[in-house]
């Protein structure tokens, strides 16, 4: 199979998987307990690492931009730069890349092991649709928790920038905060929340698809896990470009 056919085939299979699992939204049985459990794993489980990473990203952003801004006597705009970079771009992208590594790989490994040990077949044989019981709760959990985690990451990242501004750059908190608040508008916030929704969906779909198509024993599980992380991160970065373009086009200025 050449690459083009492979891409079309995988897109078709992933679309069918999403469509069949989406039927579980309107038809019984509903797997509420599984969904809440997955939200706990994705959201609560990833919160500390997402916040820790965001704090240092905010701090580094403040350090890097302040030195450039200082050349123009504009270091008071540090807050503006940190906040806009985080909310528009780095918050969603880096949080979701972390999720692809932590959650996407876990999904692919778990479903992959279930596939090779015939647990997926056993589930179907026992009259339960694995797409509804396993796939849908994971999609919902990632679509809901990715933007939630991004909000936390944005806040903590901005605080990280503030700490550096206060301690190393000696910019007053009021100046940093005002500059950050003035720079952001509702459009940025909308864009910054739309992105993680799409990225969360990508992580869940890629993770589940890689897991469910696993073949070839434990080696296959390892391969699926790696593929899911690489594919999720690539798709996140590619879709980020197109989403940014869309968000800017829909924005108040509508340029580009």
């Amino acid at each position: 199979m050449n690459l083009a056919i492979k891409i079309v085939f995988e897109t078709q299979e992933a679309t069918l998987m999403v469509w069949r699992s989406a039927l579980g939204l309107v038809r019984r049985p509903f797997y509420i307990r599984e969904t809440i459990n997955q939200m706990d794993i994705v959201g609560v489980g990833s919160l500390p690492i997402a916040m820790l990473a965001a704090f240092f990203i905010g701090a580094v952003l403040a350090l890097q931009t302040a030195s450039t801004l200082q050349a123009f006597g504009a270091q008071n705009y540090t807050g503006r730069l940190v906040a806009t970079s985080l909310v528009r771009e780095l918050g969603p992208v880096l949080t979701c890349i972390l999720l692809a590594g932590r959650i996407g790989s876990g999904i692919a490994a778990e479903l992959g092991s279930m596939k090779v040990s015939e647990q997926i077949d056993a589930m179907r044989a026992l009259g339960t649709d694995p797409l509804r019981k396993l796939v849908l709760p994971r999609i919902i959990a990632l679509v809901v928790m990715s933007p939630t985690l991004t909000v936390f990451a944005n806040v903590v990242g901005t605080i990280g920038g503030l700490v550096i501004s206060l301690t190393l750059l000696h910019i007053p908190a009021s100046v940093y905060n005002t500059s950050a608040r003035d720079a952001l508008n509702y459009h940025d916030i909308f864009g910054g929340l739309l992105k993680p929704v799409v990225f969360g969906f990508i992580i869940a779909v890629v993770g589940c698809r890689c897991g469910l198509r696993t073949q070839g024993g434990t080696v296959g599980v390892g391969r699926s896990t790696t593929q899911s992380v690489v594919m999720s991160i690539l798709l996140i970065l590619i879709s980020d470009f197109f989403l940014t373009k869309l968000i800017i086009a829909l924005g108040p200025t509508g340029q580009f």
């Binding site: 279930m114 040990s117 015939e118 647990q119 056993a122 179907r124 026992l126």
Partner: peptide
């Protein structure tokens, strides 16, 4: 179809090679 098969599967019990228990 898969949904029609779900009803048929209720009449069938399958014992897998390694048990295929949910870990």
């Amino acid at each position: 179809t898969e949904s029609k098969m779900m009803a048929v599967r209720k009449k069938i019990g399958m014992i897998f090679q390694e048990g295929a228990l949910f870990d």
